[in-house]
Amino acid sequence: MCLAVPMKITAINGFQCTCEAKGIEREVSLFMLQHEDVGPGDHVLVHVGYAIQKVSSQEAAESWALFDEVLAEL
């Protein structure tokens, strides 16, 4: 339950944003990241619909390589 996944921000509306990963779109809250400067194109770590940290695109790519393996198993 404590696993967060990296997603890419595609649009922002106030504290709400739309994020994308692997072709899947999700509405994500930026309320916990309101102190950070984030915009479309940035990657964030998303847990239960909340962005908990900003991450680099490289970290996002490395994490997804792992999740592909884990998801294949579930």
Partner: peptide
């Protein structure tokens, strides 16, 4: 139910 990573968003929800 949840540990810190999950409880923080619940707090955030209430704070908003």
């Amino acid at each position: 139910a949840g540990f810190e990573t999950t409880t923080a968003p619940v707090a955030s929800m209430l704070a908003e």
